[in-house]
Nucleic acid binder design. Structure first.
Lengths: 166, 166
DNA sequence: TTTCGTGCAAACAGTTTGCAATCCG
DNA sequence: CGGATTGCAAACTGTTTGCACGAAA
């Protein structure tokens, strides 16, 4: 069985099993991702910096993010405008609902997209990876104001221009 | 009845109707997007540069892309790692299948995601904007080699995706 | 003529890389 | 000890911005 990143004891094994060294930086990065659930590299950097130890340079954050991604321990998705969002891969048993209004990110079970997966497979033989699917739109709170999605023309003055957000 | 970006005559109207000026740069950018169907800012830049006129600085490309996006004439999606992909919004009556293997981008009708839209609406009151949905995965050609999607870190319970029909 | 839009260069954000010092195994 | 990692700074890509000039209306 694959060791779980949730269990601090197993974390080391994950690295060792791949012939990689266990360093405090790696432990701290992985722990911080676990705490944040989903995070961009610089949020992660701040989280790691606040865990009591020394601050880690961004380059180390990035390198470890890459390593962890290669190991399949974490995965990235582009949910927002700026930096990609990383999360534990084992936590990726859902897809993301990203609100264009308030920026809120909700999770929904993969099952909601089962039909989609089947449809594109039947149509094109395309094997969809739903785990990282970012579904944009408007959450229950933001939708009321601007519900008209299915307007193709471009007549409507959408003003979801750009949002700063966090 | 919004004027259509496809009709060169109407293009000017689109701008004027919004109190914006008609410049050769704007015409050329819009025309190039129409030709390319979907494009990143720098592909677009090269396309514009090759249309016979003077080269346009990237900043002009970006500014016009922003303007056109605000007008609802074009829309952007993040399909690949690097830069976002722009396309005419009226052409956005489909979602994108992005192959992780070869990078190919295929289009599929929005209808394949109808159930998804309904499901998330029922669950969370989330109004999905499927027009820009980037579905990652493996195309028919690339899938065979690496079909096991639903594995990775987690104990995979369900594993739909690749098993509907052999 | 009055602005708006363009061109250019400098500033930015996010990410990658080279290299010497450091630490794990 | 010896190679894998780190820290730091410099390089890079993609994008934005300030400002003076040129051009639509």
């Amino acid at each position: 069985m694959t060791p779980s990143p949730h269990d601090p004891a197993d974390v080391d094994a994950i690295f060792r099993n791949h012939g990689l060294r266990v360093t405090s930086q790696r432990r701290r990065v992985l722990a911080a991702i676990g705490r944040l659930q989903h995070t961009t590299p610089d949020q992660l950097s701040r989280e790691v910096d606040g865990d009591g130890g020394d601050a880690l340079p961004l380059s180390t954050i990035y390198r470890n993010l890459d390593t962890l991604t290669e190991l399949g321990v974490v995965a990235a998705t582009r949910l927002t405008e700026g930096a990609p969002t990383y999360h534990l891969d084992q936590h990726a048993t859902h897809l993301h609902l990203v609100c264009n209004g308030c920026g809120a990110i909700t999770e929904a079970p993969l099952a909601v997209a089962d039909e989609l997966a089947e449809a594109v497979y039947d149509r094109d033989g395309f094997v969809a990876d739903l785990r990282h699917l970012p579904v944009h739109g408007w959450c229950a709170r933001c939708a009321p104001g601007r519900t008209e999605i299915p307007d193709q023309g471009g007549t409507d003055q959408h003003d979801h221009t750009h949002q700063h957000r966090a």
